[in-house]
């Protein structure tokens, strides 16, 4: 694991803003959003990593910015990697990983649905859980909605 970490740090240098080794087989990296897709591709293809299983991808809102969380597992080495990155709330865009890991396809759609994050290069970025005509992104911290009065229509966002 140590060798693999050193190789990654050597490859990406400054783009890796922070990293911690939480347990002997779990390491967490915070990377800059510019290299998000590159790092994910490297982790999948590099012989020392071989992270072939995308476990989870999600977004959370700290109020100042959106943070992304990607958890990967390797079926070859049984080690875990968590990648974090931050993107701006006003222009939430980041590269899509759906063509690298098909398993994050629906996760990215859900994050678009709930937070409005645009995943560039996603084959089918449209709402998945909420009705197609829903306005607004409910999981954002500043989402406010009032009941619409019609039981067949949900609450409508207040601008």
């Amino acid at each position: 694991m140590n060798e693999a970490i050193q190789e990654l740090l050597g490859r990406f240098g400054e783009a890796v803003q922070e990293w911690t080794q939480v347990t002997p087989n779990e390491v967490r990296f915070t990377v800059s959003s510019v290299v998000w897709r590159e790092v994910a591709q490297y982790l999948r293809d590099a012989p020392l990593w071989q992270m072939d299983y995308p476990a989870d991808l999600t977004v959370w809102d700290t109020g100042n910015e959106f943070w992304l969380y990607l958890r990967l597992w390797s079926s070859v080495y049984n080690h875990n990697v968590i990648l974090f990155t931050a993107i701006s709330r006003e222009e939430p865009r980041i590269a899509s990983l759906a063509t690298l890991y098909p398993g994050v396809d629906w996760h990215e759609r859900e994050m678009y649905d709930m937070y409005g994050v645009i995943f560039e290069g996603h084959p089918n970025l449209k709402r998945i859980l909420l009705p197609d005509d829903w306005e607004g992104f409910p999981f954002r911290k500043d989402y406010v909605a009032v009941p619409s009065g019609d039981p067949l229509r949900g609450p409508q966002p207040v601008d």
């Binding site: 909420l130 909605a145 039981p151 949900g154």
Partner: peptide, 11 residues
Amino acid sequence: SITIVKGVDQF
């Protein structure tokens, strides 16, 4: 919850 109808007797 913003997506749940409060009872099916609404409609």
